[in-house]
Design a protein around this nucleic acid. Structure first.
Length: 259
DNA sequence: CTAACTACCTGAACGC
DNA sequence: TGCGTTCAGGTAGTTA
């Protein structure tokens, strides 16, 4: 087993026999509180998904299942557990084609080695995400605004899709290193709107992303920037442009989002 | 400390 | 059809 593999699946065997006391989400991380002072940390990476194995759903494990959780109780008060009961399932598969996902069991709250989680910014839809502090942090950063958002430090949970969408709404050039107060407030608002709407539509599915019951999210049809290069901007009609910024594909309107 | 690279994987889409 | 290249929703480790 390579060092990388060890990083992606850390001490997972320590979850065996543990009771799941609670589940919560922080940014893109799913955190399970286990007994014995342990915590299960899960991240889907780019192609990961959790799937309940059940007859109603018809899902059967394939070659891309990297881990399997056998559950002996589906009565806990969580949405996932409700799904499990509906599907009559007791086995949860972690499927991940590209193996960029992470599963780790750590002492509760000990995020050494999970640097991004340790330095994770505020939840975007909570009061902790404050527009004044957001603007101040943006002022301290020397990075271009888009890669800065992707670090997860200014705010948790904004990935490549929602960064492009939010910057388009706020009319901010993704390369910008200085953003005025009005525009940074617009970005703060746009991030919350973009994420809220995507959550209402149960996520953005291109290929791999699936809900735990196997259904696709419905947000992909509503994207106005990400994946829309060459198409006309919905505001001004200019053709959207795609560039590489910080190693990530970035689509924006060269007119509305000019510097 | 921050910021910029690179590595990690596999499959789909594309060009010839 | 077949083969090579490029790209993809993210993070962690290394380097400067």
């Amino acid at each position: 087993m390579s060092a990388q593999r060890q990083l992606r699946f850390r001490a997972l065997e320590r979850a065996a026999g543990r009771r799941v006391l609670g589940l919560r989400r922080r940014g893109k991380y799913l955190l399970g509180e286990l007994d014995g002072g342990l915590e299960l940390v899960a991240h889907l990476g780019m192609t990961g998904s959790f799937r309940f194995r059940g007859e109603a759903d018809g899902w059967q494990p394939d070659a891309y299942v990297r881990a399997t959780f056998t559950l002996d109780d589906s009565s806990a008060a969580s949405n996932s557990a409700v799904e499990a009961r509906n599907l009559g399932a007791s086995v949860l598969d972690f499927r991940d084609v590209r193996r960029f996902g992470t599963l780790a069991v750590v002492p509760a709250g000990d995020y050494r080695g999970l640097v991004t989680l340790a330095a994770l910014g505020p939840e975007p839809l909570s009061d902790d995400f404050d527009p004044v502090r957001f603007h101040a942090a943006l002022g301290r950063s020397r990075m271009a605004v888009k890669p800065w958002l992707l670090t997860q430090r200014p705010v948790a949970g904004v990935g490549n899709i929602y960064a492009d969408e939010a910057l388009w709404r706020a009319r901010i050039n993704p390369h910008a290193r200085r953003v005025g107060r009005e525009r940074s407030l617009a970005l703060w608002t746009a991030i919350r709107e973009v994420l809220s709407e995507a959550i209402q539509r149960e996520g953005t599915t291109f290929r791999d992303y699936r809900m735990v019951n196997g259904e696709s999210g419905r947000n992909a049809d509503f994207l106005v920037a990400y994946g829309q290069a060459g198409r006309a901007c919905r505001r001004c009609g200019t053709n959207l442009r795609k560039v590489v910024l910080g190693g990530r594909g970035t689509t924006y309107c060269p007119w509305c989002q000019r510097r």
